[in-house]
Simulated scan of single mutants.
Amino acid sequence: MEEGNQTMKLYSHWMSSCSRRVRLALHLKGLKYDCINITSVGDPELLKVNPMGYVPALVDDTTVVSDSYAILLYLEEKYPQHPLLPQDLSRKSINYQVASIVSSSIQPLQNTTLVNYIGEIVSPDEKIPWAQYHIRKGFVALEKLLTKYAGKYATGDEIYLADLYLAPQLDNAINRYKLDMIEFPLLSKLNKAYSELPSFQQMLAETQNLDADKAFNLVKQQAA
């Protein structure tokens, strides 16, 4: 960070894929931050920062930004090291499209809160099929969209905005919702590449702010 600036604060939750996007960006840009893990709904400290009560929320000196998309664009403008968007306009547009598909057409429909609500009003047996259906629908589009652009990563051989959205979503689909990835060879290839990135590995480690057994049991309860 620039000399003289206070360390940023990121309000996060260990299961939040939206928070993971921001953590990845912070790691990639080499920015120091304190991670404040929110453990309860309506946390008063979070509400002071974001009245909506959602994570992530970023405090950077006197600037407060909520919503992962807004945070990522803010970080990109203020801290240009390791750009999150390519210069090529066509590839830049693909990054925006991937971010939109994940954030508006996949992630909200497999959000734990909504999945649990489906279990309550329909049937517990419908929770996983519901999540898998909406994830798969989005993945079909992403697999086609990225065919002409993917290299080692989503839109070439550098990590960009699209990868920040894809990496946590792929992790959710495979490990939380057990989606069969056989029809998505490109996305599977990208997931393998992400899993080999030190920044991605560190992000996963940071999400485990609970001991491994307890974390596994909580995820199982949420997804079961």
Rank of each mutant, 00 (worst) to 15 (best):
V140P: 03
V98H: 00
S17K: 07
K152C: 02
L46R: 05
N172E: 04
L47N: 09
R23P: 13
D180R: 12
Y79W: 00
I182E: 02
A162Y: 00
T39K: 14
Y96A: 15
G151H: 10
E206P: 13
R23L: 14
T112G: 05
R91D: 01
D60Y: 11
I182A: 12
F200W: 04
L179Y: 06
A167E: 04
L84A: 09
K29N: 00
A150F: 02
P129I: 13
Q202Y: 03
L24C: 11
G30T: 08
Y160I: 00
R91A: 05
N172Q: 09
T112F: 11
K178D: 02
E45V: 13
E183N: 13
L24K: 07
I135P: 05
S90F: 06
Q132T: 15
A224P: 05
D67V: 14
Y96H: 06
K78F: 08
A154Q: 02
I174G: 11
P44K: 08
D213Q: 11
L28A: 03
N50D: 10
D157I: 04
D61T: 14
Y194S: 01
Y149W: 12
I71N: 11
K9S: 07
P108I: 02
P51M: 02
S188Q: 09
L114V: 15
P129L: 15
T63E: 02
I118V: 15
D213R: 03
Y96I: 12
V22T: 12
L164D: 14
T113Y: 04
P80L: 06
L114M: 09
S123G: 06
L164N: 09
I121M: 07
S40D: 07
I135V: 10
K9F: 10
K32F: 04
A162V: 00
N209H: 13
L204W: 05
I38P: 03
F200I: 01
L89V: 02
H27S: 10
G30P: 10
Q97I: 08
L28Q: 10
R20L: 04
N116H: 13
S123F: 05
Y149I: 08
G4I: 01
N111W: 13
Q97E: 08
L28D: 01
E126G: 11
Y149D: 06
Q208M: 12
A205E: 04
A131K: 09
L89S: 08
K214Y: 05
E143K: 05
N111T: 11
T62Y: 12
S105E: 09
Y133A: 15
N217Q: 11
P129D: 11
T7Q: 04
D180N: 14
P198A: 04
L146P: 11
P198L: 03
N116Q: 14
E76L: 05
D213F: 05
I128E: 08
S19Q: 11
K148C: 15
E158F: 05
P56H: 12
V22I: 15
Q169E: 13
E206C: 15
A205T: 07
F184T: 04
G30Y: 13
A205N: 09
S93K: 07
A57C: 10
L145N: 05
V64I: 15
R91S: 06
L31A: 11
M181T: 07
Q221D: 04
I159N: 00
G151P: 13
Q97K: 09
A154Y: 07
L142N: 04
E183D: 09
D180K: 08
K48E: 09
H82Y: 03
Q201H: 03
K137G: 13
L84R: 02
A141H: 11
S16A: 14
K92Q: 05
K152T: 03
D43T: 00
Y149H: 14
M203W: 00
Y117E: 01
